[in-house]
Design a protein around this nucleic acid. Structure first.
Length: 807
RNA sequence: GCCGCGGUGGUGAAAUGGUAGACACGGGGGCCUUAAGAGCCCUUGCCUUUACCGGCGUGGGGGUUCGAGUCCCCCCCGCGGCACCA
């Protein structure tokens, strides 16, 4: 009597048994080699997970199951990135508490993940909004503070007027808030920062030592934006003040005709002459009211105002007027630049608009030596120096070095390295996050909350509507009885909360020691499990992935751990789009809920289909008929496994196919080329089904290889095969391919004429490397001989593979 | 503009410099069935052809090679990151 494949009959049953068996529990004391395999932790806001989220999770699960069967001690944890704006906004919209809506979202997600058959070690579950977790987030913040890596300063920061909070640079996309797409404003505010720039060079260099996608590494390199240049200090005519600029191209400085400073530059006030006072302050006022986006979109239409002061160019004694313009960024370099309008487009636009002199100091390959009067003549990237004294005739790049040497020798400048990377702004004026654990006292300033008093609990007596100041300000209890840790006088707590990226910068460390109540994590446990051997997730190159790297390096320098990088291998999974090629969203009605799919086809079909869709790193659209195809395939496998197995050992062809399959599927999983692994199952199935007989051994190996992909079905069939009392298939050893079966008796030799396929020969393996023999056989072939009748000039022979006649 | 990744049938896609299109989806035809569905079998890059044979074919143009989807040069297009960064 053949059983029918009814996924719902078997999946819940096995999930329960696996859960109770504890077979996914990672062993802290095992002597087996470890593998730490994880996906980016889910973000439980209002909407539940859709099939797109599952892509990376399933891939991680396949890899973890494969690793476990391959003899590794596997750590595969799960957690919740539970704090944060979307969850808070969702709570406001639905008039619930974020505590409640988040808990509900987590509950729903757990069901989805469990019913997908994920093999997590639930004992290590982490929830970043749990006081038992954020206690240690706060503790870590204090350690950063003690090291001088967390500090408070007043700076121009990004402000989202809709979400009513500051944002990190990394959260501003094209001048807009990454969450709500509102144009970001600049505000001068006192905020907490993390000194990630101290690690800029190491963050850059260590990219060479980690196995990450080229695009992610490139994005981080761009973001760090290391540039070698020089800071030049100019005297200001008739003043004791000096102005320092940063430039990467001092070679053109004989052509410098003005200085431009950011409106925020501290020198502005001091050097503005009385008659320019009004126009300067008017300009600064007008700039303040512009959004960042408006400032950027000005492009060629530069704005600016003259301060009335001049800087002296020591190269030629030229008096360079000092202007203020908002195209100069206060945060980059020194916040001031030297304008060389002949050889920089932006400087040209500025000088052209305000009638400043333009001097040619470079001749490009066009040979033009005439005065520069149009943008087309601006020579930026190549050429030879002219009108530049000791640099004349030199290539611009050599001249750059020579000029830097000159300036350093003359003592008015120094080579420096400049970065695009800014310190990370971590305080937020919102409710749903970990309170910054700091106390302010008039007398002693800022001091950390004593560690014995952690966690600083998020108060619940709060109306958390965003107003621009932290909602915690409105709590009646939060400031009760707060005293200064130094003088014990009256004091107040910091009311801002930490950016959620702080929470997610160390959660992988907590996974290593999730229930530790004495420490954030024990060093020896973290050192045992870390670094993460495989990390799968979305492309958060310039946010989470750079913050986590910074955290690990900083914690290493504090002696809390002893490795350099958190994620030895990172794999970026693509997105799954709706069947209509649009992003899955309620708005388009194209969302596929995993539970609906599981109900209809089973978790194994969903898993297998997602692995089969295409390369894991590519984005691709959902296809219902594709799902059905996989469902049909699993049904065929089910039927095949119901057929009576022969006792005979597999014949040579069957062994060849079996060992080829072991090798192919093993290599593909290791490389995460899961789509071709699945297609190989189909190939092997097609082979077995054509032969109409299958041995016990083939069944066993097939099921073992299938287990990571279709854990429920393979487990059920495994027990059909081995008896009810048999040990779980997921505890079996991964099959190993044996090279002796990969050799075949016969070889197929492709025959080409002038590189074009004209036929093929099947020869005994022993003769496949014998050119004379193969050549003779090929020449005898009637079809071939007609192609080479005009005479053979040359024969190329690749033993066992190809013979090519050149005629 | 700079950096990175891509471009292969109707579709998703395979191919250590060595038979391009594996494996699927979809399509066409057939078997089974009163019928539908399921299942099974055949077929399916394009052109020519009843068929065979052949020709063409991996964004475009050059090159290296006995042989190029794959390597090199130039160009076009798409996606992603950065961007008034001095």
């Amino acid at each position: 009597m053949q059983k029918k494949y009814i996924p719902s009959d078997i999946e819940a049953k096995w999930q329960k048994i696996w859960d109770e068996s504890g077979m996914y529990t990672a062993d802290d004391s095992s002597s087996k080699p470890k593998r730490f395999v994880m996906e980016m932790l889910p973000y439980p806001s209002g909407a539940s997970l859709h099939v797109g989220h599952m892509l990376g999770y399933v891939a991680t699960d396949v890899y973890a199951r494969f690793s476990r069967m391959s003899g590794y001690n596997v750590l595969r944890p799960v957690g919740w990135d539970a704090f944060g704006l979307p969850a808070e906004n969702y709570a406001i919209k639905t008039q619930t508490l974020p505590q409640e809506s988040t808990a509900a979202a987590i509950k729903a997600s757990i069901e989805q993940l469990k019913r997908t058959g994920m093999g997590y070690d639930w004992a290590r579950e982490v929830n970043t909004s749990d006081p038992d977790y954020y206690k240690w987030t706060q503790w870590l913040f204090i350690q950063f503070y003690k090291e001088g890596l967390a500090y408070k300063k007043t700076a121009a920061v990004n402000w989202c007027p809709k979400d009513q909070t500051v944002l990190a640079n990394e959260q501003v996309i094209d001048g807009k808030c990454e969450r709500c797409d509102t144009e970001v404003e600049q505000k001068e505010l006192e905020q907490w920062f993390m000194a990630i720039t101290k690690y800029a060079d190491e963050l850059l260099e260590d990219l060479d030592h980690i196995d990450w996608p080229a695009s992610t590494k490139a994005a981080q390199r761009n973001w760090i934006g290391r540039k070698e240049g020089i800071e030049i200090t100019y005297a200001i005519d008739g003043s004791d003040e000096t102005v320092t600029v940063f430039t990467t191209r001092p070679d053109t400085n004989f052509g410098a005709t003005f200085i431009a400073m950011a409106p925020e530059h501290p020198l502005v006030e001091k050097i503005t002459t009385p008659e320019n006072q009004k126009s300067v302050s008017d300009y600064i006022e007008s700039v303040k009211n512009k959004t960042e986006l408006a400032r950027e979109s000005e492009g060629k239409d530069k704005t600016g105002v003259f301060t009335g002061s001049f800087a002296i160019n020591p190269l030629n004694g030229a008096k360079m007027p000092i202007w203020i313009s908002d195209f100069v960024l206060s945060g980059y370099g020194t916040g001031a630049l030297v304008g060389v309008p002949g050889h920089d487009m932006r400087d040209f636009d500025f000088a052209f608009k305000f009638g400043l002199p333009i001097v040619r100091v470079v001749i490009g390959s066009d040979g033009d030596t005439s005065p520069i009067t149009s943008a087309a003549q601006v020579q930026e990237e190549e050429g030879k120096m002219i009108n530049s004294g000791f640099l004349d005739g030199m290539d611009i790049h050599a001249a750059t070095e020579k000029m830097m040497d000159h300036i350093e020798k003359e003592g008015y400048g120094k080579r420096v390295v400049s970065y695009h990377l800014r310190d990370w702004l971590i305080s937020r004026q919102r409710y749903w996050g970990a309170p910054v654990p700091m106390i302010y006292c008039e007398k002693d300033g800022w001091n950390p909350v004593p560690e014995s008093e952690l966690p600083v609990l998020l108060p619940t007596d709060v109306d958390f509507q965003p107003t621009g100041e932290s909602p915690i300000t409105r709590s009646k209890t939060f400031q009760e009885g707060v005293t200064c840790p130094v003088c014990h006088g009256n004091a107040r707590r910091e009311v801002d909360t930490l950016d959620t990226f702080v929470d997610s910068s160390w959660y992988f460390l907590r996974y290593c020691d999730a229930s530790n109540t004495k420490e954030a994590f024990a060093k020896e446990k973290v050192d045992k499990w870390m670094p993460v051997d495989l990390y799968i997730g979305g492309d958060h190159a310039t946010t989470h992935l750079i913050f986590a790297r910074f955290f690990v390096k900083a914690l290493r320098d504090m002696g809390l751990l002893s490795f350099d990088e958190p994620f030895a291998r990172f794999f970026k999974n693509g997105h799954i789009l709706g069947e209509d090629n649009r992003k899955m969203s309620k708005r388009w009605g194209n969302v596929i809920n995993p539970l609906d799919l599981i109900t209809k086809f089973g978790a194994d079909t969903m898993r297998m289909y997602e692995m089969f869709m295409g390369p894991l790193e590519d984005s691709k659209s959902w296809s219902t008929s594709g799902v059905e195809g996989i469902y049909r395939f699993l049904n065929r496998v089910w039927t095949l496994m119901q057929t009576e197995a022969t006792d005979a050992t597999p014949d040579k062809e069957a062994l060849f196919m079996m060992h080829t399959s072991i090798k192919k599927i093993t290599d593909d999983i290791e490389a995460l080329q899961v789509n071709t692994a699945v297609s190989h199952f189909m190939k092997w199935y097609n082979f077995l089904s054509e032969r109409k007989h299958i041995s016990q051994e083939e069944k066993e190996i097939f099921l073992k290889l299938l287990a990571p992909f279709a854990p429920h079905m393979s487990e059920e069939l495994w027990h059909d095969l081995k008896g009810e009392a048999a040990e779980s298939i997921h505890k079996q050893s991964w099959p190993v391919s044996d090279n002796q079966y990969l050799a075949r008796n016969e070889a197929l030799i492709v025959v080409q004429v002038n590189g074009k396929l004209r036929g093929n020969l099947t020869v005994e393996n022993s003769e496949a490397g014998d050119q004379a023999k193969v050549e003779a056989l090929a020449r005898q072939d009637a079809k071939i001989s007609s192609w080479i009748s005009t005479g053979v000039k040359k024969v190329i022979f690749v033993p066992g593979k190809i013979i090519n006649f050149v005629v």
